[in-house]
Amino acid sequence: MRAGMMAMVIPLAVLSQGAVPAGPSRERPSEPVLVLGTFAGYKPGQVAVTYDPKLVPAGAAVAVAHVPPGEGAGTGSVQLRVQGLQPGRKYGAHVHTNACGAKGEDAGPHYQHMRDPVTPSVDPKYANPRNEIWLDLATDAQGNGASRAVMEQGFRDRHPHSVVIHAEHTHTGPGHAGQAGPRLACVNVDF
């Protein structure tokens, strides 16, 4: 994606029909979705926000795709692709409960299928890639990277609203499980 390109939210069913909708809405939250964005500083309505332009430069591109699990059987997935980040670097990334805001903390905690009664969640029983959606990635020499998380279950009574990119790969040990350092960037996704 080129710098200055408009961010879009497109239901995947529409893409398969060869048309692009006029606006960024979709009919049902259980439909597949694709979000494309270009990182920039925060402003209301910004799809992709950078909080650390050194590690997630303004103008870098991002795509998030969500395919929910099928009715009754099958798995779903969330995919993250980035272009133009720092080359040869490891990043953590997770699905978060709230939309992006002026500060990284505005995105709230990690989405968890089974919620940890303790906040922040650092217990591996709750903070793990089966209960949360982890999208850690490493960039290549051009600053491009991708990751994919398989989902055995869909979002039921509540839906997350963003993907946050962190400064480190996600820790897994007790007392640090789920932690991945400062929040560098955020992408609004209406899962």
Rank of each mutant, 00 (worst) to 15 (best):
M1H: 03
R2A: 13
R2G: 15
A3R: 02
M5T: 13
M6Y: 08
M6R: 12
M8E: 14
M8G: 14
A13Y: 10
V14R: 01
S16L: 02
Q17C: 10
G18L: 00
V20P: 14
V20A: 12
P21G: 09
P21D: 01
A22S: 07
A22H: 08
G23V: 03
P24R: 09
R28L: 13
P29R: 05
P29T: 02
E31V: 02
P32E: 09
P32H: 00
P32N: 00
V33N: 08
L34D: 01
L36S: 15
G37P: 07
T38A: 07
T38W: 07
F39L: 02
A40R: 05
Y42M: 06
V47Y: 10
V47D: 10
A48Q: 13
A48R: 00
V49L: 14
T50V: 10
Y51W: 09
Y51I: 02
D52A: 08
D52T: 03
D52M: 11
K54P: 12
V56W: 05
V56R: 06
V56N: 04
A60V: 06
A60N: 03
V64S: 15
P68G: 10
P69S: 02
G70W: 02
E71G: 11
G72Y: 13
G72C: 13
A73M: 11
G74F: 09
T75Y: 11
G76Y: 10
S77I: 05
V78A: 10
Q83A: 15
Q83V: 08
G84K: 04
L85Q: 05
L85R: 12
Q86M: 12
Q86E: 09
G88M: 13
G88R: 08
R89K: 10
Y91R: 07
G92M: 12
G92L: 12
H96A: 00
A99P: 14
C100P: 07
G101A: 07
A102I: 06
G104S: 01
E105Y: 07
A107G: 03
P109F: 03
Y111E: 03
Y111K: 09
H113V: 02
M114L: 07
M114N: 15
R115T: 15
R115S: 04
D116C: 14
V118W: 01
T119C: 00
V122C: 07
V122I: 05
K125F: 10
Y126W: 15
A127Y: 03
P129W: 00
R130I: 14
R130V: 15
N131D: 12
N131V: 14
E132W: 04
E132C: 14
I133S: 12
I133V: 09
W134L: 01
A138L: 03
A146T: 09
A146S: 05
A149G: 00
V150W: 01
V150P: 04
E152R: 12
E152A: 11
G154F: 05
G154T: 14
R156L: 04
D157S: 11
D157A: 06
D157L: 01
H159K: 03
H159T: 07
P160I: 05
V163R: 09
V163G: 12
H166R: 08
A167R: 05
A167D: 11
E168P: 00
H169I: 06
H171T: 03
H171C: 02
H171D: 14
T172I: 06
G173K: 08
G173Q: 14
P174Y: 13
G175S: 04
G175F: 09
G175I: 00
G178S: 14
G178T: 03
Q179T: 13
Q179N: 01
A180R: 02
P182Q: 09
R183G: 08
L184E: 10
V187P: 08
V187Y: 09
N188K: 00
